[in-house]
């Protein structure tokens, strides 16, 4: 069991690596998608017993997935706007976020 949790954590860290070390906006979104999937899996494993997966755990996993999906669609829309405005997807070029 602990191995499964550790693998989920590593998957999360892989996503985090993408968010932190990649400059392309699409890559950042891919990193977040990986993190969302790992969170969903943690909920599945948490509720797992021989008979199946518990209801509340499933509900929470579903909420995490759908919420993450909603956030990612917004991010995609924003990245397209940013590309239109700055002509690049490189986040180090898009510095006008600084207020």
């Amino acid at each position: 069991m602990i191995a499964t949790y550790t693998l989920c954590a590593i998957l999360f860290l892989v996503g985090l690596y993408g968010v932190v070390r990649r400059k392309n906006l699409i890559k950042v979104i891919i990193g977040i998608a990986i993190m969302v999937q790992s969170v969903g899996l943690v909920f599945v494993v948490l509720g797992y017993s021989e008979g199946g997966v518990g209801g509340i755990s499933q509900t929470m996993g579903l909420v995490a997935l759908i919420g993450g999906l909603a956030v990612m669609t917004l991010m995609i829309a924003t990245s397209i706007r940013l590309h239109q405005k700055y002509g690049t997807s490189d986040i180090s070029e898009i510095r006008r976020l600084k207020g």
Binding site: V20, S92, R96
Partner: peptide, 14 residues
């Protein structure tokens, strides 16, 4: 506070 906002995603993630 705005000095801490350097506009880089990585910093915010940290």
């Amino acid at each position: 506070l705005s000095v801490l906002h350097n506009g880089r995603l990585t910093t915010y993630v940290s």
